[in-house]
């Protein structure tokens, strides 16, 4: 069977694994939508005027929609892939796959592609919720920027999950580690504090990691005051750097065998 057909089947399997797991569905779909609804309802109609890098007022709903798109994508990519890969490794699935003729690039591509597809679907869902419930304007002419940001951000968070999953040494630790790290980054990056400027030390720590750059780039694409196409090239470059770093680290450190194997 050709590699493309195997790839398509692998994407089918990976997405079924994701969509049939109540735990993943809750973390990836329910929780982000819940964040949007709760924050949107609390700050409904409010505007903030101290959004970093902006002289204009911005509605909290717009900020939260961009923020929750990012949260959802990080859940669908980084969290979900870390959990799947760590569990499959510890349960011997990766080792078993390794002893078939399945090329490893097909396996990794299928995993990442599935995460990207779910990310796109989730971004559409969250944007739709924002638009319907809180009158958030769609990106309009900034749609290409929103899409590119979405893909680059999702790719970056997916590829970072490959080496990160190696740090998880028991399947039971996969959820707390993946969820804990991303929750920490959401707080650090201001995803839960619409429009508040972060203290400088916090901001400089957050600038090391991809989530804040992803958020800033996504906010520009959603901000109706943005002039031009809305591409935040600096932030996208950082995301790209993380993607490359993740891929290189995975090439060097990815493990197929369970931790117990010597």
């Amino acid at each position: 069977m050709s590699a493309v057909r195997v790839l398509r089947r692998e994407v089918g399997c990976a997405s079924r694994v994701m969509l049939r797991s109540p735990q993943t569905l809750f973390l990836v779909v329910a929780l982000p939508v819940l964040y949007l609804v709760i924050f949107g309802a609390i700050f409904s109609g409010e505007e903030v005027n101290d959004v970093p890098g902006r002289s204009w007022n911005l509605s909290v709903s717009v900020i939260m929609t961009a923020s929750v798109v990012v949260i959802g994508v990080v859940s669908a990519t980084f969290q979900s892939l870390t959990m799947t890969l760590a569990q499959d490794r510890e349960r011997g699935v990766l080792k078993r796959l390794r002893s078939t003729p399945l090329p490893s690039w097909v396996f990794f591509t299928a995993q990442v592609l599935t995460a990207l597809l779910v990310s796109v679907a989730l971004a559409v869902l969250v944007t739709g919720c924002g638009a319907l419930a809180f009158d958030v304007a769609l990106p309009g002419r900034r749609t290409p920027a929103a899409l590119v940001t979405l893909i680059v951000g999702a790719l970056s968070c997916s590829l970072v999950a490959l080496p990160f999953s190696v740090l998880v040494r028991r399947s039971a630790a996969a959820l707390p580690l993946a969820f804990g790290v991303s929750l920490g980054l959401f707080f650090l990056s201001g995803n839960f504090f619409p429009g508040k400027a972060l203290p400088d030390p916090v901001a400089s720590v957050a600038d090391i990691f991809p989530v804040r750059h992803f958020f800033v780039a996504m906010l520009t694409a959603f901000d109706p005051h943005t002039t031009g196409a809305g591409f935040e090239w600096d932030n996208l470059a950082v995301l790209g750097g993380w993607a490359v770093a993740g891929a290189l680290l995975a090439l060097r450190w990815f493990r197929w065998a369970p931790t117990g194997d010597r």
Binding site: M1, R5, V6, R9, E10, C13, R16, V17, R20, S21, D88, R91, G92, V93, K95, R96, S99, T100, P101, L102
Partner: peptide
């Protein structure tokens, strides 16, 4: 690898996939 089949000492296939899906998935590798 295509000429070898194996049962490892402990493997727990992804709980979400059915027997038919898993066997068809592996068949596609060969």
């Amino acid at each position: 690898r295509a000429r070898i089949g194996l049962v490892l000492q402990s493997t727990q296939m992804p709980a979400e996939l059915t027997v038919g899906e898993l066997v068809a998935r592996f068949a596609a590798f060969y």
